[in-house]
C-alpha cells in the first residue's frame, strides 16, 4: 500500500510562470462547464429514492394485531395505542403516531412481529398545525406498500452458531416467552385479558381450602409474540420474559 496523495504533493516547483497550473485550471473549467447540472429543481423534480427509504412509518391496518411492541420500542415515545374501528366495526387497539416527534428511526417497523408497520418513502410531512402531525391508524396507511419497505428482524442465536447452524434467523418474538412464577400468581386473569393474540388461557388447576377454583395461565407458545403486555400488567410481577440467546 502506498500513499496516493502524499507521494505527489506538495510539488517541488510551484512557480507563477509555469504553464501547467493554468492548463490544469482550464481543463477543470471545461470539464465542469460541459457537465450537466448536478442540482435539481426540487419541488418539480424529485430524486429517486429506494423503497427501503426510512420516511414516516406506515401501517397496514388489517395485519396489525395491536400488540403495542412498536409503542414500547419507539425511542421518542411518539406512538400511542388508540381505539380504532376495524372493518367489521369492532373496537380494536391500533398505533397512532405523532409524526412531528418521530425521528424516523424505523424501530417500529423493525420490531413489529407481523410486519404490519413498515417504513415508507414519504418524507414531505409539513402541516399547518401540530395537531395535523398526529397520524391516526387509518391515516398511517401508505398506498403502494411494497415488500422492500418491510424491515425484517433476522437475528441469529449464539447457541445456534455454536452448533454450526447458520441458516436459521429468528427474532425475539419467535423465541422469547413469558414464564410464570407459580407462588406469586393469584389467578386474577389479567394477563389473559390483555393478551392481544389470546395466547393465554386460564385453566383450573385445583381448588383452594374454601372450595374456590385456583386458576393459572396457560400459554400457547405458537400464538405468543412476546409483546410483554402480560408482564407489564401483572399486579404481582409473577410473569417474567425468558430470553433465549
Amino acid at each position: 500500500m502506498a500513499m496516493k496523495y502524499l507521494d505527489k504533493y506538495p510539488k517541488k516547483f510551484r512557480g507563477t510562470g509555469g504553464i501547467r497550473p493554468i492548463l490544469r485550471v482550464l481543463r477543470t473549467m471545461i470539464k465542469t462547464t460541459l457537465h450537466r447540472p448536478v442540482t435539481i429543481l426540487y419541488p418539480y423534480e424529485k430524486e429517486w429514492i429506494p423503497d427501503n427509504y426510512r420516511g414516516r412509518p406506515g401501517l397496514r391496518f388489517d395485519r396489525c394485531i395491536g400488540c403495542g411492541i412498536c409503542m414500547r420500542a419507539c425511542p421518542t415515545t411518539c406512538i400511542t395505542m388508540v381505539d380504532a374501528e376495524d372493518d367489521d366495526g369492532k373496537i380494536v387497539k391500533r398505533p397512532q403516531v405523532n409524526v412531528g416527534r418521530c425521528m424516523m428511526c424505523g424501530y417500529c417497523a423493525e420490531y413489529c412481529p407481523v410486519d404490519a408497520m413498515t417504513t415508507t418513502p414519504d418524507y414531505e410531512l409539513a402541516e399547518f398545525t401540530r395537531k395535523d402531525m398526529i397520524y391516526d391508524p387509518r391515516r398511517l396507511a401508505f398506498e403502494g406498500t411494497t415488500e422492500m419497505m418491510e424491515v425484517h428482524l433476522e437475528e441469529h442465536l449464539q447457541s445456534n452458531l455454536d452448533k454450526g447452524i447458520e441458516d436459521k434467523p429468528t427474532a425475539f418474538f419467535d423465541t422469547d416467552r413469558p414464564v410464570l412464577d407459580d407462588d406469586l400468581c393469584i389467578g386474577c386473569s389479567k394477563c389473559a385479558k390483555v393478551c392481544p393474540t389470546s395466547a393465554i388461557e386460564m385453566v383450573v388447576v385445583g381448588q383452594n381450602a374454601k372450595g374456590r377454583d385456583i386458576k393459572r395461565p396457560k400459554l400457547d407458545s405458537t400464538k405468543c409474540v412476546c409483546c410483554e403486555n402480560c408482564v407489564i400488567d401483572c399486579p404481582k410481577d409473577a410473569l417474567k420474559i425468558e430470553e433465549v440467546l
Binding site: 425521528m103 424516523m104 424505523g106 424491515v151 433476522e154
Partner: peptide
C-alpha cells in the same frame, strides 16, 4: 440511503451486528 434508508441519521449498527444486510 441505499444501505440503511437514511442520509445522515443512519441508525445502522445494532448491538450484536447491523440492522440489515446490504441490498
Amino acid at each position: 440511503v441505499r444501505l440503511c434508508g437514511q442520509r445522515l441519521t443512519t441508525n445502522y449498527p445494532r448491538i450484536g451486528g447491523v440492522r440489515n444486510d446490504m441490498p
